[in-house]
Design a binder for these strands. Structure first.
Lengths: 97, 97
DNA sequence: CCGTATCCCGGAGGATACTG
DNA sequence: CAGTATCCTCCGGGATACGG
């Protein structure tokens, strides 16, 4: 469990993975979809996920540059965890004051 | 999903829930089992979980005092999420350097 | 035993300016 | 477009001392 908690650590990490479950996305697409975290923060999280082999980073040599992030097989397997989270959240709305 | 992320937020929260899945525990038992987080931190997290109806806090009027934390039905239902985390962690060990 | 009250620190994350 | 480079803020969490 500690392993999973470490991989999904950080304010944006889980949301990044969720976003990529619907297919590879560019840096800018991710920023917009997530609600515009700072570029620094997004870069930091993406690099961490890359080092943990959760996603791959592909730079296309074009002008302007195009950088695509794609989940690895390991990354996609996190869908099991995210789906459990989704289910729980749907079935247990916040308590009233 | 945001709901689940909010409930499980914090360095110790998920581990607290895991610990309580094996049955109600006292404050001191939790501290020991978790590896001695500070009393302040543990109290903060337990209070947050209590407000979110994930667990209940029962004070037994004895000397010395005995305070027992027990998962609610909602809290126990988080086992689905934690189990998915456990499974993923077991099946995907850390990548080599 | 189970906290509360203070004080403190590191580091995640944001704001802004700049670059290949 | 997709970052880097800097600087800064905020606050979760730890350390310590004390209280019911």
């Amino acid at each position: 469990m500690e392993r999973t908690l470490k991989v999904l650590d950080g304010k944006w990490t889980t949301l990044i993975v969720r976003e990529l479950l619907s297919g590879p996305k560019r840096f800018g697409e991710l920023r917009t979809a997530l609600g515009s975290p700072s570029a620094k923060t997004l870069t930091d999280r993406l690099r961490a996920l890359e080092h943990q082999r959760i996603l791959t980073r592909t730079v296309h040599a074009e002008v302007p540059p195009r950088v695509v992030y794609r989940l690895t097989e390991q990354g996609e397997s996190l869908s099991e965890v995210l789906y459990a989270m989704l289910r729980w959240g749907e079935e247990h709305p916040p308590a009233e004051g």
